[in-house]
Computed example of a mutant assay.
Amino acid sequence: MVSLAAEQRVRLPALAAGWLTQTFVHWPFRTDQVQRLLPEGLTVDEYEGAAWVSFTPFLMADVRPAVLPGATPGLPTFPETNLRTYVRGPDGRDGLWFLSIEVGNPLMLAARAVGAPYNPGRLSLTHDGDVVRYSGARRGGSPSYEVAVRPGRPLTPTQRDVWLTSRWRAYTRRLGMLWETPVEHEPWSLRAAVLERFEETVTRAAGLPPPEAEPVVHFSEGVRQVRMGASRPLSPSRPAH
């Protein structure tokens, strides 16, 4: 069951970071359209009979090895944009599978070693009055996106809001195996949001058809106490706990 608060403590984190100024743009898709993009061992996690895909631009802040004290500066803040979907692993537990990750800091490309699909590019995040603007283009110029979002009132999260925004593990694939990375942070503080501009080719590049429904949009000022654990390989028969 998806929960607002972290499902587990990450007692020995590998990395610490903040995820700030985050917009979530979510669409429902037919389950078969998403399942065909997943590796063996993962199945689509449905909500109300649909698979969901989320486009999430944000700022990565103060990324550093967790062994360093909190007062130690991490990497300079930089934009990142994820295209992700919601899955269940071999043991039935819910998590995220990243269809693509666009990043403006080349140092993050080291995460490809654990199977994360990072793509280098030129990304920006700016403020224009009450509007937050995100833009990016992968190296070579495509795919790309231009997004302008106007945050609105604070939300008391519904069950769907929590389901779409709160996940406490991510899956990757490398060396022929699935790997699980646990995550812990404070609950998201969500606001309603309106898209004033949204143009992107990232979903098409990932192998998805055009969305058939209007998106659900959220905004958050972010979470600052993100603790990411070390990735561990999964056995198809590993029991849930």
Rank of each mutant, 00 (worst) to 15 (best):
F58N: 08
F58C: 09
M60Y: 10
D62S: 12
D62N: 15
R64W: 02
R64N: 05
R64M: 05
P65H: 14
A66K: 07
A66H: 13
V67F: 15
L68C: 11
P69S: 10
P69Y: 15
P69D: 12
G70K: 15
G70Q: 11
G70L: 13
T72A: 14
T72V: 15
P73Y: 08
G74M: 09
L75H: 11
L75P: 03
T77V: 13
T77W: 06
T77P: 01
P79H: 11
E80K: 05
E80D: 07
T81D: 02
T81E: 03
N82S: 07
L83N: 04
L83S: 01
R84L: 03
G89Q: 04
P90L: 12
D91S: 10
R93M: 09
G95P: 02
L96N: 02
L96V: 02
W97Q: 03
F98E: 02
S100I: 13
S100Y: 05
S100L: 10
I101A: 04
E102Y: 00
E102N: 05
V103N: 10
V103H: 09
G104Y: 06
L107Y: 14
A111W: 04
A111G: 03
A113Q: 15
A113D: 12
V114I: 15
G115D: 10
A116D: 01
Y118T: 12
N119P: 00
G121M: 02
G121P: 07
R122N: 03
L123V: 09
S124I: 02
L125P: 00
L125M: 14
L125H: 07
D128R: 14
D130S: 13
V131E: 14
V131L: 07
Y134Q: 05
G136R: 00
G136I: 02
A137Y: 00
